[in-house]
Design a protein around this nucleic acid. Sequence first.
DNA 1: TCGGTCTCCGACTAATTCAGTCGGATATAC
DNA 2: GTATATCCGACTGAATTAGTCGGAGACCGA
Lengths: 166, 166
Amino acid sequence: MLSLSKKTDYGLLALSHLTKLKEGEAASARELAIEFAIPTELLAKIMQRLARADIVRSISGPSGGYRLSRPAKEISIASVISAIEGTPAFTQCTKSDGTDCDQLTRCTIRKPLAHIHAKILQMLSLITLAEFDESDSTTYPVVLMSQAAKPRTTTVMPLYGHKNED
Amino acid sequence: MLSLSKKTDYGLLALSHLTKLKEGEAASARELAIEFAIPTELLAKIMQRLARADIVRSISGPSGGYRLSRPAKEISIASVISAIEGTPAFTQCTKSDGTDCDQLTRCTIRKPLAHIHAKILQMLSLITLAEFDESDSTTYPVVLMSQAAKPRTTTVMPLYGHKNED
DNA sequence: TCGGTCTCCGACTAATTCAGTCGGATATAC
DNA sequence: GTATATCCGACTGAATTAGTCGGAGACCGA
């Protein structure tokens, strides 16, 4: 459904918290987990991945924790998604280089889909954590559809005349 | 991983084939399934959904089959995804109206994520089946990253320094 | 009118992915 | 040395997705 996993949600949430810390401060995984009501062990695992991707830096020992490894404006949403979920792929084909769908030699849609995928990725790579928090104060550079902020997803895309849930 | 399901892949593939049919022609589900090496019953099911969403029109009886219910240039990728996968949601929060994550009252990321989601959806709603096929001849209006056509996904986003697969 | 071919539909099972848990290792401040 | 922190892999259960099965109704041609 073109959606991010819960893990990524959690990760972004934690990162957005780290963004607000002052220089030198760190927040422990448990602290963050309690703050946002996320299972402690799960968030710990997510933070480990972010650490491995050098998005956060870990400080061991008591009074340790995590802090951003570089300024929030240098951390893109795309890199966060990639760190937590692994290599993103828009279609099944684009995961490998297409050798596994050799049955579909007549696959005419791979190329256009790859383009779309790239465009989405580029968009996500232009949005940083810094902009994420700015949007609290209703200024957000990526806004295109004003109705997007509405909670009801059904009405987000007026294009969808008919929907069926499985 | 921000990816489309296989069903959607199959659906787009079938639709791209229907696009090439002449006026009055129809292709049966089985015909399409054999053509693209897709399980017959599965594709039949996908076509049914597309029919329900009025993207294709079904013709019963022998010598029947499916054809597009309107010109390819009036069928957006977004509507196809929506028809096959149901209401798209970028995050878990945006699926319902947020009542189920009331634990996350401090959720500061919902709004910016909703914006990103809307932007992706808008992009997909601007691309039609017609453009899908034009791209065979290397002219494609949505191109932004030229390297996107490369098969190797690892190099698509140079931003991703570190990736880990689960 | 009868049989074959088609769409149509829902329910079912299998396979895969995702969320969350557990146990144990290492690092460090007090 | 001990308590608290990260770290890491392996495991289980839940949820989603892929694919299957069986049967009903529509339609064309003989």
